[in-house]
Structure formats: structure tokens, C-alpha cells
Amino acid sequence: MADGLTKSAARNIFYGGSLFFFLVFAGLTAHTHWYMVNVSTDSAGLTESVKHGKEVWEKNMCINCHSIMGEGAYFAPELGNVWERYGGHENPEAARAGINAWIRAQPLGVEGRRQMPAYDFSDEEMSSLIDFLEWTDGIDDQNWPPHPAG
């Protein structure tokens, strides 16, 4: 062990260095916050409905089966790009109908297949939820995931 280093020098390096790195980190976080609001996400498109959609997403804790932008559980498919997977970029109406139909069809009850629970969303909740997923798909996330498969 570095014998030249005294305990109090080690302590001072720890406090000083940590403070320095914290300030750098906080500064970069502030910049990232600004970047997210102004560059990488569609702030203008963050409507009341998208907001409500996020609430529906949270109220039903979808995150503990699915991942969204790669975070969450790994039990069910990635949903950050589900809009793309359902062809939303080419045909938004069909994607909307498709996602809606999938959720309404639960539970599938196929033997030996993972099951998604049934949710009795109102039409308004359903459409907010889909708005939220569409909005999320639009986040500029450095082209992740590599394939539409998620």
C-alpha cells in the first residue's frame, strides 16, 4: 500500500475528489435534462393524453413484466418500440387497432405460453396508453434497439 500516503491525505482526496466528480456529474445531468426536453423528445407532442397514458402504464405496473427502452422486467416483450413493431410508422391507424385488439384479447389462455392479464380499460384509457407508447417510440434513443424485435 502506498506508504507515502497518510490517512488524512487519503481522507482529503476522498472528500475533495468526490465533490468534484459530483459537480461534474450534476452539471452533465442538467445538460442532459435540457437536451431531453429540447432535442431528443417531442415536448410539444407531450399532450394531456400522453401524460394520462403514462399514468395508466404506471397504475397497472406494466413495468414488472415488460421492459420499456430496455428497463423493467424481462418476462414480456420490449414496449418502447412496440409502435414501430405494429407498423405505426407506415400505418398509424392499423397500429392503433392492432395494439388495442391485442390488449383486449387477453388473457389468451394458451397452454404453456406466458400469459398477460386482462385489463378492462375504458376507450379513453386505451387511447391514452397507445398515445404514450407512440410518443415513447418517437424518442431519439441512439437507434436502440438494433431490431424492431425489441
Binding site: 468526490s18 461534474v24 456529474f25 452533465l28 437536451y35 432535442v39 431528443s40 427502452m69 430496455g70 424518442i139
Partner: peptide, 15 residues
């Protein structure tokens, strides 16, 4: 502290 950014690669943060 700066390692936190290994979670910021794909969530809409700067490159």
C-alpha cells in the same frame, strides 16, 4: 458518479 451514464446510453440522452 460518472459511471451512472452506463444507463444513459439508450434513453434519449446525448451521445
Amino acid at each position: 458518479l460518472l459511471g451512472t451514464g452506463h444507463h444513459y446510453y439508450w434513453i434519449g440522452a446525448p451521445s
